[in-house]
């Protein structure tokens, strides 16, 4: 309803000047690889160039940029796979539809899975295993050590590594 003072139309160029450094830094921390980070941040701006309409109502540019970049990192094919495997597994577990989660819950979980996949992307496999066992599976550090046949000290180190890694992905 407050039409008179339209904000000046932002150009891709300005957006680039204002936020490219930030986006690249965020992706580099996230991906741990400057080359990949440069590719993804380049592709992110290319995508915005190809859909200039989104500039007009971009109220939170960083949120928009990071979402676009996230979708480039976990691309369409992988998102589809994530969705398919999750639904397939649910179907298997609740063959007679007993106690299966509500559609709303499934939807929310799928959104969350995408975020988690992005957060965990680039983390070593063992650290990821330990992390999921600890918080998703609710196993103690001792139990994880036993299952992975490593020392508790190592489990702890993996957990720290995972928490730091994920935080860097989430911290927009």
């Amino acid at each position: 309803m407050h039409k008179p003072a339209d904000p000046p139309r932002r150009t891709v160029h300005e957006l680039y000047l204002d936020h490219h450094g930030w986006l690249f830094g965020w992706l580099r921390r996230k991906l741990g690889c400057p080359q990949n980070a440069a590719d993804i941040s380049h592709d992110t701006f290319m995508r915005i160039l190809s859909a200039p309409d989104c500039l007009a109502d971009m109220r939170q540019p960083r949120a928009y940029l990071s979402t676009t970049a996230r979708r480039l990192v976990i691309d369409e094919a992988r998102r589809k796979r994530l969705e398919a495997v999750y639904l397939e597994e649910l179907a298997r577990l609740h063959e007679h539809n007993e106690g299966s989660p509500s559609p709303e819950r499934i939807n929310a979980t799928l959104e969350l899975l995408e975020i988690l996949a992005f957060a965990l992307e680039g983390l070593g496999e063992k650290a990821r295993q330990a992390f999921l066992m600890r918080y998703l599976g609710n196993l103690s550090q001792g139990e994880i050590a036993e299952r992975m046949a490593i020392s508790e000290r190592m489990v702890r180190r993996y957990l720290v590594q995972a928490l730091v890694h994920c935080n860097q992905a989430m911290d927009v």
Binding site: V85, L116, A117, E121, L136, N138
Partner: peptide, 22 residues
Amino acid sequence: QLQGLHEERDAVQAALSSTLAA
């Protein structure tokens, strides 16, 4: 968030592993 998914842990684990190992 992760703890909230505990009841669906098998499906979540399978989905994440398949995607991230891709």
